[in-house]
Design a protein around this nucleic acid. Structure first.
Lengths: 150, 150
DNA sequence: TTGATTTATATCGTTCTACGATATATTTTG
DNA sequence: CAAAATATATCGTAGAACGATATAAATCAA
């Protein structure tokens, strides 16, 4: 359970840089969603519904799993999306407890715009992220752990 | 401003997979922070303070920039951290408007534990993330865009 | 130096999202 | 058919960030 080696200042810096990059992406995404009139989680829900489509219509429970939230939180999220006419609930024919979710035309349109800009942004960020992930992955050679400062 | 090519179902799936992986990491991080008795943002603030240390003591304003939040939100975050004795404010000697932030011993200890587990988790996730980022980066050849399912 | 402007931090009230606890409807099990 | 399990829904609460605004310190203009 103990870490294999002591963390150096450089390790903290790398972790902090990674978080900074992550925050940068999340802010981009949040701003993009807000520009489209959505909360970030609403955008992510649209994407999860659309991305699941190939496996059949998604239920509230599956949506919750994809977003890593509790099912009853997904209920509330879908409530908001349905109020904005971006998603529609349909009772599942086989199991009447379940609800199937489907994007409306408007939901599809908003998601398409957001997905296009996200794909571009992720492509832009890819080299930086890759570099940071590699640094985090590899163990530095012994004696090479310094502060890296000055 | 228009996307270069139409998004395929596979594109949505890849974007959704990427978000799913991201959510997975964020949930891991949130759970880890919660286990240490912290909110996720509190953990991220500790990391940002520590990671900035090589560039000198961090101010509220710099912390806000690193976390991509407004300065007055950083104030509130630091309020909570100081209440838990994880961070201490010190008036900046040169500019008395500024405040310098420093981790307490307890703050250092908690951060060290969390950073070690995060480094391991990121190393675990690295291959998957790298793969997804590459897929998002490269343009698929024309006619190759399918659903990718089954 | 003094007064105006800018910068850094702080305070207040509000909003959003997720949560725990709980409820209802439907399916499955015995 | 009754009991247990599953899926979705409702209600009240809490945490974090925000906009608007306030205060203190530094800088600039003349």
């Amino acid at each position: 359970m103990q870490p294999k080696r002591k963390l150096t200042l450089a390790d903290y810096q790398t972790l902090a840089e990674f978080r900074y990059a992550l925050r940068g992406f999340l802010r981009f995404s949040e701003d993009a969603a807000r520009s489209a009139g959505l909360a970030s989680q609403q955008h992510q829900a649209l994407l999860a519904i659309k991305g699941f489509a190939a496996m059949g219509p998604i239920t509230i429970g599956h949506l919750a799993e994809r977003l890593q939230i509790r099912p009853h939180s997904a209920v509330e999220l879908v409530d908001r999306l349905e109020a904005r006419r971006l998603v529609r609930r349909t009772p599942a024919p086989l199991d009447h407890r379940q609800v199937h979710l489907k994007l409306t035309i408007e939901g599809e349109e908003i998601l398409e715009r957001l997905s296009a800009s996200h794909r571009e942004q992720l492509a832009r960020m890819e080299p930086q992220w890759k570099r940071m992930l590699e640094i985090l992955h590899q163990e530095p050679p012994p004696g090479a752990g310094g502060t890296g400062q000055e």
